[in-house]
Simulated assay, not measured.
Amino acid sequence: MFHIDIIEQCKKNNRKAQMQLYNQYCDGMYIVAKRFLKDAADAEDVVQEAFINAFTKLHQYNAEVTFGAWLKRIVVNKSIDLIKARKADFVALDEVHLKVVDTEKDSKWLVDEAITLSDVKTAIEKLPDKYQYVVMLFLVEGYDHQEISEILGISQVASRTQLSRGKVKLQELLKLKKNGARY
């Protein structure tokens, strides 16, 4: 069964096709949710809700993006909704997915060798929520400002501004750590 055929079968409420699509994406979507949520059970709940939502609204999927990207957006939105509802903190990042800087484009973002991944994780967790969301979505999840503005319900200018300010605060926190001060 081709990927498009599976989606078409899912639109017809074919449970076998739905299970196949779920099995194909559930682990990856769990990782995405877990990056945002501290609790494994919360991440599992978000993934389940995202799949229910996706299967319910599958008729809205128009293949402009891959199904995985469409589903990832649902997972990210549901994760942020849960965080906002609980006013929770962001979870530590997974090493594999951390993309702190693009050194070619932004050389001032070079991080001192003494700064560890743990330091970066802690610093991101210390950012104010409005900066933390944008920093996570941009630097970790790889969303652009248009996508961030849609997800968070802010303008693209606000997304750029909050990212810029978030980066400055993150650099300050990392500089403090380098100089021996504690967070």
Rank of each mutant, 00 (worst) to 15 (best):
D42I: 00
F51L: 07
G68D: 12
L174R: 01
V76R: 11
A17D: 08
T103A: 13
K78S: 12
K169V: 03
A43L: 05
Q60F: 07
K178C: 06
Y131Q: 12
F2H: 12
R165Y: 12
V32F: 06
V101S: 15
I7A: 04
K78M: 11
G28T: 05
L176N: 12
K34Q: 11
K11R: 15
K57E: 09
K57V: 02
A69H: 03
I4G: 03
R86A: 09
A17W: 03
L110I: 14
L163H: 06
Q162L: 15
K99L: 06
A123V: 02
K38C: 10
V135A: 01
R165V: 02
E8P: 00
Q60S: 14
L173G: 02
Q24T: 14
R165Q: 14
E49W: 03
K177L: 07
Q60I: 03
L176I: 02
I154P: 04
V91Y: 14
D5I: 01
N13A: 10
Q9F: 08
K34Y: 07
V96Q: 15
Y133R: 02
S107R: 12
I148N: 08
T103N: 06
N62W: 00
R182G: 10
D42S: 08
H3N: 10
Y22K: 11
L174D: 04
Y25G: 05
T161A: 11
D144L: 00
A114Q: 10
L176V: 01
N77E: 15
T116Y: 04
V168M: 11
E49H: 09
E44P: 00
Q132L: 10
Y133D: 06
K126T: 08
D112E: 15
V140H: 08
K99T: 11
Q146M: 08
K121A: 10
H59P: 00
A33V: 04
A181H: 14
A54G: 04
I74K: 09
G28K: 14
V168P: 01
Y30C: 08
D129S: 12
K108M: 06
Q60W: 07
C10F: 01
N62T: 06
Q171H: 11
V168S: 11
V65W: 00
I4L: 12
F36D: 07
A114N: 08
M19Y: 12
I115S: 06
K38D: 11
L152K: 03
V32Y: 05
C10V: 05
S118R: 12
L173R: 00
L21P: 03
D39N: 12
G142L: 06
F55Y: 12
N179G: 08
L170P: 08
K12F: 01
L137K: 06
E141R: 09
Q162Y: 15
K99W: 05
W70Q: 02
N53S: 13
S79H: 05
F51M: 05
I74E: 04
F2D: 15
K11L: 05
L110D: 06
A54F: 00
Q162H: 13
F55D: 08
K84L: 14
A17I: 01
E8V: 00
E147L: 07
A63I: 01
V100E: 09
Q24G: 00
T56N: 13
E147P: 01
I52A: 09
W70Y: 02
C26T: 13
K167R: 06
V120T: 07
R86H: 10
Y131M: 09
D27P: 00
H97W: 11
L110T: 10
L37F: 08
L137R: 06
